[in-house]
Design a binder for these strands. Structure first.
Length: 257
DNA sequence: GCGACAG
DNA sequence: ATCTTGTCGC
């Protein structure tokens, strides 16, 4: 039933001439394959993935695999590919998935779970890049975003690890309900305070785990910064100053590329 | 018509 | 995402 891991090359062909309109339709179909379930087995490894742009039309994906136990890097991969889809809010995966799959194929060993830059099911059609990547690869995935794309939420508690639900739909306006919100929507994710005094992160499950599992994992990976270590590594490698981070990786024991 | 709008 | 200078603080 569920799709086998698709190759980057195949994906490139499938999406070669896709339009935003067709992409939205495809999201509705693909979202039906997303599976959110509790009790993700404790992973041995957790990876972070991010995409940077060397220029207007060249994307660069970076994946860094960390040991779950101590968050030490054990593997990484880099890939480049021409950009063939514009940035459209809600359609991010069509722009970034191809180059990410290419990088995944270069890893020595696949990670047990993947933390993505962007949302999971906290998306208008429930298929943020993390959810889409999960279905495409079959891997458990988590969405970790710095800004909201969709949904509404109340005040975020100040303590580290505290959070408030990110609900589907839009906050009800009107003075009659000032202070209180609609109870109608479903919980899609969480607005999580990883560090007191800093802006919160938007966490949502992507595939093969639930919200609690996503939150536990993100907190486990977040030590002394606002962002999880996975994201920080991938971010660094995908960016312009990637050389600096590359040097740190190559100085490590068993981290090949 | 007006605001919202991952990376 | 990317383009960019300085600045405040541990």
């Amino acid at each position: 039933m569920s799709a086998e891991p698709i190759s980057a090359e195949q994906l490139q062909r499938d999406w070669a001439a896709i339009t935003p309109a067709r992409a939205k339709a495809l999201q509705l179909e693909t979202a039906r394959q997303v599976r959110l379930q509790p009790d993700l087995p404790t992973p041995a490894t957790v990876a972070g993935v991010d995409v940077g742009f060397e220029n207007r039309d060249t994307a660069r994906a970076a994946i860094v695999v960390l040991r779950h136990r101590d968050l030490e890097p054990v593997d990484y991969a880099l890939a480049r590919l021409p950009v063939r889809f514009p940035y459209v809010p809600g359609l991010l995966s069509f722009r970034e998935c191809p180059v990410i799959l290419k990088a995944l194929e270069q890893l020595q060993t696949l990670p047990d779970v993947l933390l993505c830059d962007g949302h999971g099911v906290a998306h208008p059609r429930r298929l943020g890049i993390a959810a889409h990547l999960g279905v495409l690869t079959g891997l458990p995935t988590v969405g970790v975003a710095k800004k909201k794309l969709y949904g509404w939420h109340g005040p975020v508690p100040e303590g580290r690890g505290e959070w408030t639900p990110l609900m589907a739909g839009r906050a009800s306006a009107g003075k009659a309900s000032a202070g209180k919100e609609n109870q109608a929507g479903e919980t899609l994710g969480a607005v999580l305070r990883t560090r007191p005094g800093f802006k919160p992160l938007f966490v949502s499950p992507g595939h093969r785990l639930d919200l609690q599992g996503a939150l536990d994992l993100v907190m486990h990976c977040t030590t002394r910064y606002r962002l999880p270590e996975t994201t920080r590594w991938a971010d660094g490698l995908a960016s312009n100053r990637g050389q600096r981070w590359l040097a740190r990786l190559e100085a490590l024991p068993g981290a090949g590329g």
